[in-house]
Design a binder for these strands. Structure first.
Length: 259
DNA sequence: ATGGTCGCAAGGCGA
């Protein structure tokens, strides 16, 4: 069973790219981020034509997440608990009824710039709420996958030019610590479990020819509960998608779960 | 380089 995460940076602008990639990569389940569209504006038809169910949590203009699945989905939950006043669409959860039953969360963590400031405070508060939810999900003892755009560069090895990010919300020490707290609950970074070396990136800025210079960072992650990590067979990054016509600034990241 | 490039949606914000 292949599960992927892909920050599309606008579902309307990316639908042709997305459909093309789905047809080639044939993932069973996909977590999408940055729809930048309300639910009614999501072009469902071309996705459903490929055999995917579609559960969206959209927002006009900004944010927005969705889970696509060729396998049945159940118990869909929208929004991250812990702040009833938070109206940003950054979280959707579902149970994937596959060969193994997996609880899957699709997340779009706040960027947090400029730091320090109110946006950075929101980022850290959101990450703390995510940690609490991640701990709750472990109690089910199901395989749990937390997949999405974390907007955190876990360590210097995850940036081509780490010095360029030292004052950025994506790399500041409290941001990295927030991600490590989730790891310390028992969640493993799937890409790192399979690929320990440098040069693995999932985002290249549109500006200044970042992709041509391979000036990338790794901020899209699939974190696996112990029961999910036991099933991990392979993981990878579809970096070639960044070279396609009208690409997102992120590329798909995927895992294969066996068992 | 207080620039640069995108998407959304029709001016400026978010990234």
């Amino acid at each position: 069973m292949r599960i992927a995460t892909y920050n599309v940076n606008g579902i309307k602008a990316r639908i042709e790219r997305l459909v093309d990639w789905l047809g080639r990569a044939r993932p069973d389940v996909v977590c999408l981020q940055e729809l930048k569209s309300e639910d009614a504006g999501v072009p469902r038809g071309p996705i459903e034509d490929l055999g995917y169910h579609l559960e969206t949590h959209g927002q006009k203009g900004f944010n927005g997440v969705a889970i696509l699945s060729r396998l049945p989905l159940s118990d869909v939950v929208r929004d991250l608990p812990g702040d009833a006043g938070d109206e940003q669409a950054r979280w959707i959860e579902a149970t994937v009824e596959g060969p193994r039953v997996v609880r899957l969360a699709c997340l779009y963590a706040p960027n947090g710039n400029a730091a320090p400031g109110p946006k950075y405070d929101y980022k850290l508060g959101w990450m703390a709420r995510m940690e609490a939810r991640a701990a709750d999900l472990l109690r089910s003892e199901m395989p749990v996958v937390l997949a999405g755009d974390y907007n955190v560069i876990p360590a210097d090895i995850d940036a081509a030019r780490p010095a360029a990010w030292v004052a950025d919300a994506l790399a500041l020490a409290p941001s990295r610590a927030a991600l490590r707290r989730i790891a310390h609950l028992g969640y493993g970074d799937a890409l790192r479990l399979r690929h320990p070396g440098p040069g693995l990136y999932t985002f290249w800025d549109y500006q200044a020819g970042a992709f041509a210079r391979n000036d990338g960072i790794r901020i899209d992650h699939l974190m696996l509960s112990p029961q999910a990590a036991d099933l991990l067979v392979d993981a990878g990054v579809d970096a070639a998608e960044r070279a396609a016509e009208r690409p997102s600034d992120h590329v798909p990241v995927w895992i294969d779960l066996g068992g």
